[in-house]
Design a protein around this nucleic acid. Structure first.
Lengths: 139, 139
DNA sequence: AAACTAATGCAAATAAGTTGCAGTTATTAT
DNA sequence: ATAATAACTGCAACTTATTTGCATTAGTTT
């Protein structure tokens, strides 16, 4: 973990604690968005003593600072979280069989957004797009 | 409500009860997907005596028959439900200010799906796409 | 009209997430 | 360094969305 992250946290009036460091380390080393429960399980596996509530509170704090992004995948019950850094605008595809989640690097919706603004008279601010199917192993 | 709906329900071994009729009537008269709580509130407003649990059980039953579709909008906590009939493949846009939900009639993702299959090696089965922004009144 | 069994209401259980509180600990000011 | 401040933590309890158990009610079939 970089000093810069610690600095960002301190600059926002928050503190870099041992548990927060562990939470950040897990998020930074995972290449797909984690649910609070998954995050908690990984921390326990690494023998980090932490309460599930603290996981939630850390995710909330990191989100308000802007270090972490909260997302909700289609048809899932819980939220997922990922580091914002180096993961700008992107979408996901998830395997219906094993649950594997991968990033999609393309976003083809710029043109479409303009069309929707015209047709609906909404001012479009955001979109979510997600695919699901079967990953190579599960086909 | 058409007889055909009643027939579909009976054909699947289910029964057309008074409460189920009321649930269906509300769903059929609403042009955007309702959460169980919203559905319950509308029923109460019409003085339909029904328990929230019964709303859930009806939605589940109607869903397994294939009359109703369950969806989860981006960043929302609960599921929403809409009649399948006459609402085939479509997407939604929601106002970030007043919560208004509208249908989008277009789906521009056929070509994209093929591209994603090639790039990810996933077999793509489904996608979800949703826009949010500000409706004309809230701009 | 009787028999069968789906549907209902109520209470209680689950799952995901939040909040209150008292004790701990990272920061800051001395 | 050290004390003072306030963020952070764990634990228990709460909230919200949804599900399940069970005894009773009521559509459907014969």
């Amino acid at each position: 973990m970089k000093t810069s992250v610690t600095d960002e946290i301190r600059a926002s009036g928050k503190r870099m604690t041992r548990t927060r460091q562990a939470v950040l380390a897990v998020l930074e080393s995972t290449k797909y968005p984690l649910s609070p429960a998954e995050l908690y399980a990984r921390l326990r596996k690494q023998n980090v003593a932490i309460d599930p509530v603290t996981v939630y509170r850390n995710l909330h704090a990191l989100r308000t600072i802007g270090l972490v992004r909260q997302i909700k995948l289609h048809q899932e019950e819980q939220f997922r979280y990922e580091m914002k850094e180096g993961r700008e605008h992107h979408h996901h595809i998830r395997c219906k069989s094993c649950g594997k989640i991968e990033d999609l690097l393309l976003c083809p919706l710029k043109k479409l957004t303009a069309m929707i603004q015209r047709e609906t008279r909404f001012l479009v601010g955001d979109h979510s797009l997600e695919f699901s199917g079967w990953c190579p192993k599960c086909q």
